[in-house]
């Protein structure tokens, strides 16, 4: 009797465990967080292109979200528009330029290289070069300072005198203490 009871509690805790695991799986899946639409795609490749495009395109209304994540009505309309253009057989480039023509360069999370955006693209490289220059500068200065200290240039007479004096007073003080 007791054994049977144990069996059932084990079973239900197992079920509980699998439920928790299931919920965790749903939560870590990024698609589960995305806004929900139902679209039928001709093939997996088109589905993949739709996902890539909607994550690369920015929602004009809710500016820190992409089209895939946003629940704004305009994002919904634009997803529908992307889907329509995909099913018309347009290329990714055409779809992007369709949206850029209407909403501006702004909708692209990866804007094209242009007079307005070159600084944005080049900034990481420029900053990296600046950092290298600074590091080299500091390293050289340290090396020079180290060389100056370690070099066995003889002390001048004045310096030697001062050292002697310091050592002398110190030893005298020590004697007093003792």
């Amino acid at each position: 009797m007791k054994k049977k009871q144990n069996g059932t509690t084990w079973m239900s805790s197992g079920r509980l465990l699998s439920m928790v695991a299931g919920i965790c799986l749903v939560l870590i899946n990024p698609h589960a967080w995305a806004a929900i639409d139902t679209y039928d795609f001709a093939d997996d490749e088109t589905r993949e292109r739709f996902h890539v495009l909607t994550t690369e395109l920015r929602c004009p209304k809710c500016q820190n979200q992409n089209l895939a994540d946003s629940n704004a009505p305009i994002a919904m309309d634009l997803r529908k528009e992307v889907y329509r253009l995909l099913s018309e057989g347009r290329s990714d480039r055409e779809i992007k330029s369709y949206l850029v023509d209407r909403y501006g360069e702004y909708v692209l999370y990866q804007p094209a290289w242009s007079p307005q955006t070159w600084l944005l693209w080049a900034a990481p490289a420029i900053l990296l070069i600046c950092a290298f220059v600074v590091v080299i500068f500091i390293a050289r200065r340290r090396a020079r300072a180290a060389r100056e200290i370690s070099s066995d240039t003889p002390l001048s007479q004045q310096e030697q005198q001062r050292i002697n004096q310091l050592l002398y007073t110190e030893s005298q003080e020590k004697d007093k203490e003792n």
């Binding site: 004009p60 209304k61 305009i74 309309d77 634009l78 528009e81 209407r102 909403y103 501006g104």
Partner: peptide, 12 residues
């Protein structure tokens, strides 16, 4: 449908 809106770049 908001079709003209999209053509005009309307987002609100």
């Amino acid at each position: 449908q908001g079709k003209l809106g999209i053509d005009l770049g309307v987002f609100g």
